[in-house]
Design a binder for these strands. Structure first.
Lengths: 300, 300
DNA sequence: TCGGGTCTTCGGAAATTGTGATGGTGCGTG
DNA sequence: CACGCACCATCACAATTTCCGAAGACCCGA
């Protein structure tokens, strides 16, 4: 038994006439006849009395008709519901963070997503550039914020802004910092970041340029831990410019450092995934960037 | 969209694997793949994520799955319900009567039908041989009791018993009835039956045999009307033997009359109709007769 | 790098379904 | 009463769909 049997059943019951039912279903009268015959055979009952005036439901047919209608309704409900879900994003998206929410403009991103995909659950998961990248690769994250150059052909990278770096120093060390010569600074204690963090590369570049190596004190792989270490007086460290503004426990040293790019990454093979596209659309709106599709159009 | 699409959808969702789903549905794996693909296309959504480990429902698929199940359940409910109705008689049967219920053993017939076809509505419609026959012919009745020989090849006739006839006379005429010679009786007033009643034929035969014609007074085409006319003293009449037993307003004359057969008739072309068969089965049980199928077997 | 598992795609075979013509039947009408 | 008409059933054949087995692509774990 298939749905077309039931559709024919209902049509014939309503039209009481094979020919009209056939017209209504855009097919031929023998086809309709065969449907009814087949249905009667599989059900093991007689649905219609054949009269010279047409088809009249038997009591059994009368009793089965509402059930057939119900089945058809249930089937079309699947279709109906699917149409409703057609362009709606549901499920969840996991986005990896690598620094504080305000700088990443997360509230705006969240607001945009909530408006355009109200049933989409958004998970913002704090991490770092070093943990986010592999997480995106293996699918633990759908996308992530990272800093520094990404050289991975399987990743799509979206540049958001340049992130100026500074050397942060604890207020408690202010007296020991006589000069801002790098060689002098290297003799003070430093708080390291983990090697896969872009700050680490910046630090290495700084000291290599001056042929010296800083005193390694402690490794922090989360930015907030790094910031806290510096404020607590553990040592110097490289942080994003501005984090110590209006902070009386730490301050920025006037040393020129290269900036690192803040970027948003996701797996390149998912660039046409509606979920990714929706996130990118909102993200680009928040950051005032042309969306990837527009970029692709420009490139072509 | 057809039911097999939904069946496949559910099977794949449960097995999470095309190959196993194919085995469960006794078909090949490419067929299953095509079903899912077609369903996704008509629904306009992606139901599964294809992974190297198998098929995993997307959130959309997850949401549509229960609806698909519902549709399948509704469809199988049609089948289920039909199976239940398979051998059950429902609707109504209309049986024409031509004389009183006790003589026709209707309570036993009704009891038998009620037991074996509880959902069958039985209508016992009083009439007469003359009205019952055409009613059966045009389908106003499904079957009927009639008396007298039936010569109609389109009818199946089932003999029930011989019905002895007598001449009934009102007590008020007792003194005027000197002899029971037919010629004498013919001079008295008579209550006629309608010409299509078997009693009419009996009456004609009686008087023709004695070369006389009775005085026609009134025509009654319902047996109970006839009986009442006689009891009221309107005239003599031919009735079934026994109706005036223990009646002080009328009595039977000791005149030999031929008996007429009581029969049960229905359209021959409906002899294999389950409704007719059920009625005949019960009727034959009530009257201690071999059912028509048994008769056919004996004849062959 | 290989073997085993997955899903997809492909061409051709098989089954199903649909078509148009034809036949049988009952009904109403001239 | 015969004819035409409307109806459904059936038939042979065509069109479509569905199905199958093989081969391809991909990923994972060994």
């Amino acid at each position: 038994m298939e749905l077309y049997h039931l559709r024919t059943f209902v049509a014939v019951a309503e039209e009481k006439n094979l020919t009209r039912a056939a017209e209504r279903l855009f097919t031929s009268q023998p086809a309709i006849s065969a449907h009814i015959k087949a249905l009667e055979e599989t059900l093991g009952v007689t649905l219609f009395d054949r009269t010279p005036k047409g088809m009249r439901l038997t009591p059994v047919g009368e009793e089965l008709l509402p059930r057939a209608r119900q089945a058809l309704t249930a089937a079309s409900a699947v279709l109906q519901h699917a149409k409703g879900l057609q362009d709606e994003l549901i499920g969840s998206v996991r986005i990896g963070l690598n620094t504080d929410a305000r700088f990443l403009r997360l509230t705006a991103l969240q607001a945009g997503l909530a408006e355009h995909a109200p049933r989409l659950e958004v998970a913002m998961l704090t991490g770092s550039t070093g943990t986010n990248l592999p997480a995106v690769r293996v699918g633990k994250l759908d996308a992530a914020f990272v800093t520094g150059e990404i050289d991975d052909p399987s990743m799509s990278v979206c540049f958001l802004c340049d992130e100026p770096l500074v050397i942060g120093a604890p207020a408690s060390l202010r007296e020991q910092i006589a000069s801002t010569e790098v060689a002098d600074l290297a003799r003070l204690p430093w708080v390291y970041t983990s090697p896969d963090c872009s700050h680490f590369a910046a630090m290495r570049a700084l000291f290599e340029a001056h042929c010296c190596e800083p005193t390694r004190t402690l490794i922090a792989n989360q930015e907030d831990a790094l910031v806290e270490m510096i404020r607590a007086g553990v040592g110097l460290g490289i942080v994003r410019a501005g984090v110590f503004a209006a902070d009386d426990q730490a301050y920025e040293l006037p040393v020129a450092l290269p900036s690192v790019p803040l970027q948003f990454v996701y797996l390149r093979k998912r660039e046409n995934d509606p979920l990714i596209r929706a996130v990118m659309h909102q993200l680009c709106a928040v950051w005032g960037i042309a969306p990837p599709s527009a970029q692709a159009r420009e490139a072509s």
